[in-house]
Design a protein around this nucleic acid. Structure first.
Lengths: 139, 139
DNA sequence: ACTAGGGCTTCCACTGACTGGAAGGTCAAC
DNA sequence: GTTGACCTTCCAGTCAGTGGAAGCCCTAGT
C-alpha cells in the first residue's frame, strides 16, 4: 500500500502519517522507487492512532498504548493506568472550562450589548470595581 | 516601574510581558540604561491581559478587547459579541471533552486492570470487534 | 515519443503562546 | 571592588501537526 491508500483507510492526512513515521510511531518499508510501502499491520496501527488521538490521548500516550498493543504479555492494568490518568486530565479541563463558562455567562448577562460604551465586561476585566465588589468576589 | 514590578503586580512572568511587548500588546517606555519603564496604564493593561487570558481569550481576542477598552466611544455590543463567540467556543470544547470522557469512562469500566493481557480498551482502539459490536456502536 | 496529471519524495517554515537558557550589561549593598 | 539580583537580547524548544516549494515517478492519452 502507498501512503495515499493508508491515508484513506485510516482517515489520517498523508502529511500526518509521514510525521508519525518521523517520530517513530510507524515504520513502513520502502520500495525501490523510494515510496513508502505500508503493510496491513501498519494500516492497523495508523487506524489505532487515529482513534486514540480522537479520544484526546497525547502522542506519548499513543506511543505507550501502541507498545502495549504490540506486547502480547502486557498487563491490562498498565493500559487502564494510562487511560485513567487521561480521564483525570480531561476532568480537570472540563472543570476549568466550566468555571470560565460560568464567569463569562455572568458577564454576558450583565452587559447591555448596545451602542453605549458602558460595559461591565470591560469593567470586570479591568477590575474597576468598588470595595464592595471586591469583597463580594473574595467571598 | 521596571519589569519585575509589573510582573509581581500583574502576576505575569517577566518573559510573558516581554513577549507581549514583542507582539505589540503593551508599549513600555525605555529608560537610558535600556530597561523597560512601565507606566500605571501599562500595569493596568497587563493586569487586564492576565485576567482575559485566564478566562481563555486568545491573544487576538485580547488585542481586540484592549482596543475596545482604550476606545471611549466603543459600543458595548462589540465587546459582548467577542465574549459570546468565546462562550460558544468554550461550549463546543466542553461538549467535545464530555463525549471523550464518556467513551473513556466506559472503556475503563470494562477493563479488569489486572495482570492479564486481555484488554477491552486496546480491543476498542484496534476495533478488533465482531459485526454485532459494530452494529451496536453505530446504533 | 511526448506530455499532462496525479501521486510521491524531501526539506523548510509556520502555527499559539509562551518558556528555558546562554551571554552579557546595570545597579545597590556590603 | 565584588557579589548578587535584576535587566537586556537572541536562539531554541514546546505540541502536533500544516502549508508550500522543488523535484522525482508512473500511467494514460495523443
Amino acid at each position: 500500500m502507498n501512503i495515499g491508500d493508508v491515508a484513506s483507510l485510516s482517515g489520517l492526512p498523508a502529511k500526518t502519517i509521514r510525521y508519525y513515521e518521523d517520530i517513530g510511531l510507524v515504520k513502513p518499508l520502502r520500495s525501490t522507487n523510494g515510496y513508502r510501502t505500508f503493510r496491513e499491520s501498519d494500516a492497523h496501527k495508523l487506524a489505532f492512532l487515529g482513534r486514540a488521538r480522537a479520544l484526546g490521548f497525547s502522542i506519548e500516550d499513543c506511543r505507550s498504548l501502541l507498545a502495549l498493543y504490540d506486547d502480547e504479555d502486557r498487563a491490562s492494568a498498565e493500559v487502564k493506568e494510562i487511560v485513567e490518568q487521561h480521564l483525570d486530565r480531561i476532568d480537570e479541563k472540563i472543570a476549568e472550562l466550566t468555571e470560565m463558562r460560568a464567569t463569562l455567562a455572568h458577564l454576558v448577562d450583565a452587559c447591555a450589548g448596545d451602542h453605549r460604551p458602558d460595559c461591565p465586561i470591560l469593567a470586570d476585566l479591568a477590575m474597576e470595581c468598588s470595595k464592595e465588589d471586591q469583597l463580594e468576589k473574595s467571598a
